[in-house]
Nucleic acid binder design. Structure first.
Lengths: 346, 346
DNA sequence: CTGAAAGCGCTTACAG
DNA sequence: CTGAAAGCGCTTACAG
């Protein structure tokens, strides 16, 4: 059985294809009676215009591409996958669909071509990247091709172009973390950095340093290390660092994010260190599971829903040629006190 | 700057549009020299054929619709959102993209029309539904319209049509749960059922009953209740049930799934009941967080990755007119023993 | 091996 | 208010 097209509808309703199109698109210059007659036939035959035909005459796809980069360890993390829902929800509220694409490695030639193709073949009105490092030639290329690109945790100073939209973590949550621990009396603070190819990890690192210097706290190599952004990496880093300085332990650890903090928990458990009695731990993100772990995690929490909604809304505003769309937005963290930090009396 | 089309490429390369098309689609009847000449121009100008043009001549979209039903409490659950990754991964392995759509309520007229439209306007080759109840007029309608529909946890006996593909939980995991507890010496077993509009919950309920009867165990109203499929519902159900029978507690609780089991943990904690000393708990799903909670959860685990991969592969096989595609598949659960059950000496 | 022509399903000026 | 015609970007027989 052949699909019914606007021609068939026109014949059945005794009008021209032009009129069918006018009715379908709700144009005003159609008398009520004609509209009803045509609508009746349309409903009866469940006619829906083919998108490909409409696209060819200039209609937009009302679709956002979502490029999820770095599956390994990131995308399969439960927090990360909940991001996805926020994006789809935010898009739906603006009547946009989301075309999803998970890429393990965005530097691979095959994947680069794949992304390019999706942008160029007219499937999407714009694309959002999540999980890239802060330098990505492909992103620059697409921006250069006037494609609208939305970026999560990706920002370059002085590269303001209207078709590059980003949402980012604030630049000073590290400093806030140090301030907080300092306020509790901590002076011997260890830092487990994240993956320094990511903007947020760079900012957090820098602002940890700023905080330490501000309070004239000792920066000791043995208390500084890298832990990536997932639990396993955090565990390995903490285990190694702590094992190497059992004779002079820090009183607190700043973990680049909650995932890393959970790894610190595991390392402490194995080394017989109690949290917070022997050592305090602070995370960043506000992961839900931080509230179920024991002791509950003190962390600097970000409103991811707000972050993704802001990004999606501004990307769509750009697609729809709204004026003065803010190009980059930085979101502030909020301290959530759990049971993982103790006050030190000095 | 106007987009470059096949006509422009043809002129630049000194050939016809037909030849450009032949090169783009990799047809064999083009001499190597011509191919090279054309490809050079294509690369230089980063020409990609517009999908909408190709679609009009019969090409398929290579896109799967994903309809995520019942956001509230389901889609924002972290386990559930990881399902999404499995679907996108499985589709990508077959070179398909996924168009995602989250719907809070699939009975609402507006949403029904939205889904219909996506199917009818030629955006997707097939659609997958996750989270529906086991009776959904819209699904039947789409199947009736010869649309290819993939279904998770949705199956009707004797309704075999080649364009309705499903993957389901086995029909007897409830019985296996009872067998397991019986084997540990439990005789007083409580059951917290799920949402009985869902196929898996019905099957689990039935097979709990089967197991209880097989072992001649007492079916007591006070030990039977409904808990939905998320933690909060499980908590409420367990709290109410246990509070009402503190004078005659069951020795074990079968929770419809892991989410409900976590709710049981919370209820037990509040009532001062220790797991497994005072009461044993068994879940179903194999949720990762069951391994992080204390005590670790004994559960009947399903391989969700396998489930979704099977579903996606068979849906795509159907799109591509493969022969003898199995229409419905039931996946077996696997016992994962944690620390939430104890042996009862009798 | 290759090009001219027709056609896919729609919308949009244009003319009346 | 409404229809005939042109056009969007592609591919596919068809003819040579």
């Amino acid at each position: 059985m052949k699909r019914i097209n606007s021609n068939d509808i026109a014949k059945l309703a005794g009008v021209s294809r032009s009129t069918v199109s006018r009715v379908v698109n709700g144009y005003p210059n159609v008398p009520e009676e004609t509209r009803k007659k045509v609508m009746k036939v349309i409903k009866e035959h469940r006619y829906y215009p083919l998108l490909s035909g409409q696209l060819l005459t200039g209609k937009s796809t009302k679709t956002l591409g979502l490029f999820w980069v770095g599956t390994a360890g990131i995308a399969h993390d439960s927090l990360t996958s909940s991001y996805f829902m926020h994006i789809v929800d935010a898009a739906a509220r603006r009547d946009y669909l989301v075309l999803a694409c998970v890429l393990d490695n965005i530097s691979e030639k095959h994947n680069i071509n794949y992304v390019r193709k999706i942008f160029m073949e007219g499937r999407i009105d714009a694309g959002i990247f999540v999980g890239t490092s802060n330098t990505e030639p492909l992103v620059d290329e697409l921006v250069g091709f006037d494609k609208i690109v939305g970026l999560f945790d990706y920002y370059h100073e002085n590269e303001d172009v209207p078709n590059r939209i980003s949402v980012n973590f604030d630049r000073h949550s590290g400093e806030k973390t140090i301030d907080y621990l300092y306020g509790l009396g901590h002076r011997k603070i260890a830092i487990i950095d994240g993956d320094l190819s990511r903007l947020s990890c760079i900012h957090r690192h820098e602002s940890y340093m700023r905080g330490m210097i501000k309070h004239s706290l000792p920066l000791q190599n043995k208390w500084l290390t890298y832990g990536g952004i997932v639990k396993q990496r955090g565990y390995e880093a903490a285990k190694k660092m702590l094992s190497a300085c059992m004779d002079d332990l820090p009183t607190a650890i700043c973990a680049n994010n909650d995932g890393v903090a959970f790894g610190v928990y595991q390392a402490c458990a194995e080394l017989g260190l109690r949290i917070p009695e022997d050592i305090s731990v602070v995370g960043a993100d506000g992961h839900e599971s931080g509230r179920h772990i024991s002791p509950t995690l003190t962390t600097f929490s970000f409103d991811f829903k707000e972050m993704f909604t802001s990004l999606v809304d501004r990307v769509i505003d750009t697609i729809e040629h709204k004026e003065n769309v803010p190009q980059s937005v930085f979101i502030e963290s909020q301290l959530v006190e759990g049971g993982s930090c103790r006050r030190i009396d000095s």
